[in-house]
Design a binder for these strands. Structure first.
Lengths: 276, 276
DNA sequence: CCCGCCCTGAAAATATCTTTCAATGGTGAG
DNA sequence: CTCACCATTGAAAGATATTTTCAGGGCGGG
C-alpha cells in the first residue's frame, strides 16, 4: 500500500462514521489526495469500488454505535441520576429478555404447551414475586377458555394439587428452584400423575426431580438496589408469555373468539360513554 | 403515500440488506416502478435522496445482524414455529422497553418519586392485568419499609382513597386511561388532597385531570394473538421499577437494611437446609 | 546524469442519482 | 355521462458522483 493510500485508509479507520458521510471527492480533499487514490484504496481494501466501501463503512458505524449503547452495563448506583436509572433499568431488562430467549429450551417449551392444550385443569404455584407471575399466566389462560388456578398459599396449593390427576398440568414458578412452599405442591401433583412444569432459574435445583418439563429463566446478575426478584420477574414473564402464545396458537379456533368475547365484556367498563 | 411508493417502501422494509445492495435503477426495476418514484419514496421517508436512504439501509441491516434482531416488523402469526414465537416475543418486549424508556418524562418521574419518599401512606389502584403491576409495586415498597397497599376492588379502593390526605400518595395504573374503576379512587384521593400519580398509556385520557404526575407507558401495537394487556404490562413494570429504584436511592439509609432484613427473614423458607 | 518504473492526480468517461415534464388515470362537479 | 381538474407516474434530460484513463513527476539503479 502506497503512502497516499495509507493516508486514506487511516482516515477511514479513524472515523468510519464520518467518512461514510463523505463522497469520493470530499474524502479525497480531506485526506489531501485525489479521487483516484480513494478508489484505489477502496479496491485494495477488498471492495469493488468506493461506493461499496462507503456502504460497508455505514454498516460498521451502525454496529459500533449499537455496540456502544449497551455500554451502560454498569450497575445501578445510589447516586445515579434518574435518567441513568431509567436507561440502565431498561437495558438490564432488555438484556434479561435476550438471555432468557437464548437459553429457553424450545423442546421443553413445546412439550409444556402440548400438555397445557390438553389439560383438564391447570394449577399454578408461585410465592412472593413469582405469585404475580403465576396470576398473570392464569389470567391469560382463563381468557382463552382454559381452566386454570393460581395458588400462593402453600397449604391450599397442596390441597389443590392432590386433586389433580393424569392429564392435568401443574406449573411451579420459583427463581431459586428451592422454594419449599412451591416444591411441595408440585411434588404432590407429580405424585398424582399430573404433568408437571417448572419455571425456574436453577434447572438443577431441588424442584427438577418433580418436573416433567423444565423451563429455564435467566439467572440474571442482581445488585444491591436491584434484588433478584426484579430481573427474574422479567424473565419469568417472558416464559409465561411464550406458553400463552403457544397455547393460543394451538387452540386458535376457540382462543380467538374467547379473547374477543372477554374484550367485549369489558368494553363498557373501560369507557362508560361507549354505551353497552 | 401513493400506491407505487408503498410498493417501494414495502420492498425496503422487507429486505433492507438486499435493497442496500441495489442502485436506484435496480430497485425501481425490482419494484416495477421508476427511478423517480424510488427517489420520491426516499424523500418521503425523511432522507435527502436515495443515496442516503441506501446508507441508512446498510446501517440498519448491520444493526439487525449484530443484534440478531429477527424480522423486526413481522407480527406473531398463528402458524409461527415456537422458535419464532420466542424470538418475536422477546424482541417485541425489548422494543417495548426501549419505547417506554425513551418516552418517560423524567421530570414527572422525579416528582412522583419525591412524593413517594415523603408519603405517610401509599395507595395503588389497578384492575385486571394492571392489578398485578400494582401488587408488584406494593411488594417492593413494603420491602423497603414504606407503607403501601394495592387495591383491585373498586369499592374498597374508593373506601381507602377517602382516608388519604395531603402528603399521602395515590397511584393509578391503567393502560387505556379510561378505566372508570381506577379513575374513581384516584379522583377521591385527589379530592382529599393527596398527591396523585397516573401510570397510563394515554396521558390525554380521562384520568389525566385527577393526576398530579403522569408517567406515560408505551402504547405498543397489539396484535390479535398478543392483546394490549401483554405489552402494556412490560411497559408498566419498567415504570414501576424506576419508581422503586428512585425511592430506594433516596431512602438508601433505611432501604438497604430493610432489603437485607426481608431477605434474611425468608432465607430458611428458601432452603430449609440453610438452618434458621 | 540518465533511464525506467511506479506513484499520483487532473481530467475524461461512465455510472448513478435527481429533476423536469408530459402522459395517464382517477375523481368529483356539472 | 362528460368534462375539467388534480394526483400519480415514468421517460428522459440534467446534475452529481464514481471510475477510468493517461500523462507528469519522483525516486532508485545503472
Amino acid at each position: 500500500m502506497t503512502r497516499s493510500m495509507q493516508r486514506v485508509a487511516e482516515a477511514v479507520a479513524q472515523d468510519p462514521a464520518g467518512c461514510a458521510a463523505l463522497t469520493v471527492t470530499a474524502l479525497a480533499e480531506r485526506t489531501g489526495t485525489s479521487e483516484a487514490t480513494v478508489v484505489r484504496t477502496a479496491r485494495t481494501l477488498g471492495y469493488p469500488g468506493y461506493r461499496d466501501l462507503r456502504l460497508a463503512l455505514a454498516a460498521l458505524a451502525a454496529q459500533q454505535a449499537a455496540g456502544r449503547a449497551p455500554a451502560v452495563t454498569a450497575d445501578i448506583a445510589v447516586d445515579d441520576s434518574i435518567i441513568d436509572v431509567v436507561a440502565k433499568l431498561a437495558h438490564e431488562e432488555q438484556q434479561c429478555l435476550a438471555d432468557t430467549a437464548a437459553g429457553l429450551d424450545t423442546t421443553q417449551l413445546e412439550s409444556a404447551i402440548a400438555a397445557l392444550v390438553g389439560a383438564r385443569r391447570i394449577d399454578v404455584y408461585g410465592i412472593g414475586a413469582s405469585s404475580l407471575v403465576g396470576q398473570d399466566l392464569v389470567q391469560k389462560l382463563l381468557r382463552i377458555g382454559l381452566i386454570a388456578h393460581s395458588h400462593s398459599d402453600p397449604h391450599l396449593a397442596v390441597t389443590n394439587a392432590v386433586q389433580l390427576r393424569a392429564g392435568d398440568v401443574a406449573i411451579a414458578i420459583t427463581h431459586s428452584g428451592r422454594t419449599t412452599d412451591v416444591i411441595e405442591p408440585l411434588r404432590a401433583a407429580f405424585d398424582q400423575g399430573a404433568t408437571t412444569v417448572a419455571i425456574t432459574g436453577r434447572p438443577d435445583g431441588d424442584i427438577a426431580q418433580y418436573a416433567d418439563h423444565i423451563l429455564t429463566t435467566s439467572t440474571a446478575r442482581e445488585s444491591e438496589l436491584r434484588p433478584a426478584a426484579m430481573s427474574s420477574r422479567t424473565s419469568q414473564l417472558l416464559v409465561v408469555d411464550c406458553l400463552f402464545i403457544g397455547v393460543a396458537q394451538r387452540t386458535y379456533e376457540t382462543a380467538a373468539p374467547a379473547l374477543s368475547a372477554s374484550y367485549e365484556a369489558l368494553a363498557h367498563r373501560r369507557d362508560p360513554r361507549a354505551g353497552r
